[in-house]
Design a protein around this nucleic acid. Structure first.
Lengths: 76, 76
DNA sequence: ATGTAGACTCCAGTCGACT
DNA sequence: GAGTCGACTGGAGTCTACA
């Protein structure tokens, strides 16, 4: 069973790929570190609320929608 | 203009008071520190994703709903 | 274009005590 | 019941470099 941050990372990765963005470009656009974005998508770190706000904004999706998808994955 | 974590703190406080819970009881039920919960509600700290998952769960509300209310406050 | 690793800073998160 | 302060530890987040 994947952990909560692993599921969240998968959702964020889906939104990034939907935009056709590389981790590198997402990092450049968001001002976050590229290696850090990789860690988030692999569920290896537990991002802060402000980091999530920045990422969702850069991915042009409401954070509430990201969390909704995450919650749907949680149940199955 | 309140910061993002200040708005989030206000939303979390509203949900806590709606349940008639004290910060102390919320801390006990969630396993988080009481002083830390106070800091979150006052917007003095930037909580992690996992902390938000725990808080929303303890407050018996989907995290996506908390974030939705936060986003509505953001616009006005 | 991504994963990994090492080294670094600073703050998330805990705890005890006092107001 | 809540705010604050001091002290502490672990990990979020950055940066460089290599595979």
């Amino acid at each position: 069973m994947p952990s909560s941050i692993e599921r969240l990372g998968q959702v964020l990765k889906q939104y990034r790929e939907r935009l056709g963005l590389s981790q590198e470009l997402l990092a450049a656009h968001s001002g976050l570190n590229r290696t850090f974005i990789g860690e988030i998508e692999r569920g290896e770190t537990n991002p802060s609320f402000e980091t999530l706000v920045i990422l969702a904004s850069t991915l042009q999706v409401p954070l509430s929608e990201v969390i909704s998808v995450y919650e749907r994955m949680e149940r199955g």
